[in-house]
Simulated assay, not measured.
Amino acid sequence: MDKIELIRSNRKSLAIEVTRDLRVIVRAPVKMPEKEINRFIGEKADWIDKSFRKMQERQENQPQGRLLTPQDIKLLTTRAKRVIPPKVDRYAKVLGVDYNRITIRMQKSRWGSCSGQGNLNFNCLLMRAPDDVVDYVIVHELCHRKEMNHSDRFWALVESVLPDYKEKRKWLKDHGSELMQK
């Protein structure tokens, strides 16, 4: 870590970010004194160090050592648009639920979501996961059509369709950050 970039803007609080390209950025309010910013950086030094090392490790473990290109993302999105809707249709019938629109896009932190109106969103990066993990995410989101929460009833519903869902969920927790790497 060579230097810390300071970006001032019309914000109310301080924030620190370690980017994928290994830059450390501090965002600060325009009028905040430099002394206060430096004190904040000092207090967060351990976190900055840890986050920087973690990001460095991710870079080193990056498959093929390269980032996804816009073309890669387009291909993943196209594939997802072909693969996911028939699966959604099949599992919706199994669960006896309906849904509205299916949207596929690149997302930074979510695999899927379900709105109160029944719109389903899926991350194109799911196409980098095993097929049964994709099924789990689809079933998870469709179960929200009956239970818009993560209650015991919700998980029982997921389990009624995928008895081994905990394995898929664990796989996603263990490997999800690798898939999210862009």
Rank of each mutant, 00 (worst) to 15 (best):
R11H: 04
V30T: 14
P63D: 03
G112F: 03
K3H: 02
G118D: 07
K182I: 15
Q56R: 08
S160H: 05
K168W: 01
L22E: 12
K31R: 12
L172M: 10
L179R: 07
A156V: 12
S115Q: 04
R66E: 03
D135C: 08
S151N: 08
F52N: 05
S13V: 10
R11C: 09
H150V: 13
I16D: 01
G112W: 02
I102F: 02
I7Q: 09
A28K: 05
P85M: 06
M55V: 13
Q62T: 08
R53I: 09
K35I: 13
R128T: 12
D131T: 13
A92C: 02
Q117A: 15
P85I: 03
Q62P: 00
N38S: 14
V88H: 01
S109K: 14
V83R: 04
R145T: 12
K166R: 15
V161W: 03
K87Y: 00
T78K: 11
G118F: 03
I138L: 10
L179S: 06
D131M: 10
G112I: 03
E57C: 00
K87P: 00
L76Y: 05
I37Q: 07
I104S: 00
P130D: 11
V24I: 14
M106Q: 14
S177T: 15
D2I: 04
G118S: 09
R105E: 06
D46V: 13
R39Q: 14
R79Y: 03
T103E: 08
Q107M: 15
I41R: 04
D46E: 14
I104L: 01
K182D: 15
A15E: 07
E167L: 13
L126W: 04
E34S: 06
T78H: 05
D174H: 08
H140M: 08
G118T: 12
S115N: 05
K3W: 01
E159S: 13
D98T: 11
K182L: 15
R66W: 01
Q71K: 11
K166W: 05
K166D: 10
H150R: 13
C114T: 10
L125S: 06
S160K: 07
I4H: 04
I41L: 07
R145Q: 14
I4L: 02
V18H: 01
A80E: 01
H175W: 07
K12P: 01
L126C: 06
V158F: 02
D98H: 09
I4M: 01
G116K: 14
E159W: 07
L68K: 04
I84N: 06
